[in-house]
Amino acid sequence: MQPRTVDDNNEITLEYDAAEDALHIFLEPVVDETFFVSLQHQPDIFLRLRCWGSKFVGISRKPASPRLGAKSPAPDAMRQLADELVLQYGRMEREEISRHQYKASHKLDDYPNVSWSYEPFSESLYINLEEDVSGSDNVGVEDFPNLHLRLARDDDRIVGMFMVLVGSYLGTEMPTRGQLSALARELIARYAPDP
């Protein structure tokens, strides 16, 4: 289903993307490339920023159906949700957004010593198997594009890994916390099964 515009009031435009199950709110017309930053404590809320200068131009909710109540949501429900989101997040200052954009560290339940973080502009997933990975060299991996292992300089043990352009691999511009943690688990299981 193609995205559709259901409202155009005060230059705020709504668009429901059924493939992503995302409600997009455009605070102004978007005429060039953008990227998404998810909020640290509300991972289903994404802010849309321009690639040129990181201007805040939109708000998205993914998944939207838990709030909209249907896979083909009614325009009224979308407008109501959009009003709430614009009221809550529409006036966020850039400094506040930067704090969310900057990498927040997350833990994996089944790997208590491992932490992961995500940087949205470069779509980079960082997985630290040890607390300090600074004294390491990066090496590419033959069978997994865009993945690099961090090897300790003294004994080549794997102390971490990072993957760039994760969105292309996952097929979404808006990877969720669940998708990222699942990918982190997959990479650990494959390349460092005993961290």
């Binding site: 005429v31 060039d32 040129w52 940087e119 502009f121 470069s122 060299d137 990066n138 990072f162 352009l165």
Partner: peptide, 26 residues
């Protein structure tokens, strides 16, 4: 890694923005 965009500020000309960079062996 450079992402190429087309900002209206540059009359939609192809323009590169560095996304990230790192060093590696090989």
């Amino acid at each position: 890694i450079i992402r190429y965009i087309h900002p209206p500020e540059w009359r939609f000309a192809r323009t590169g923005v560095i996304r990230t960079a790192w060093s590696r062996r090989g």
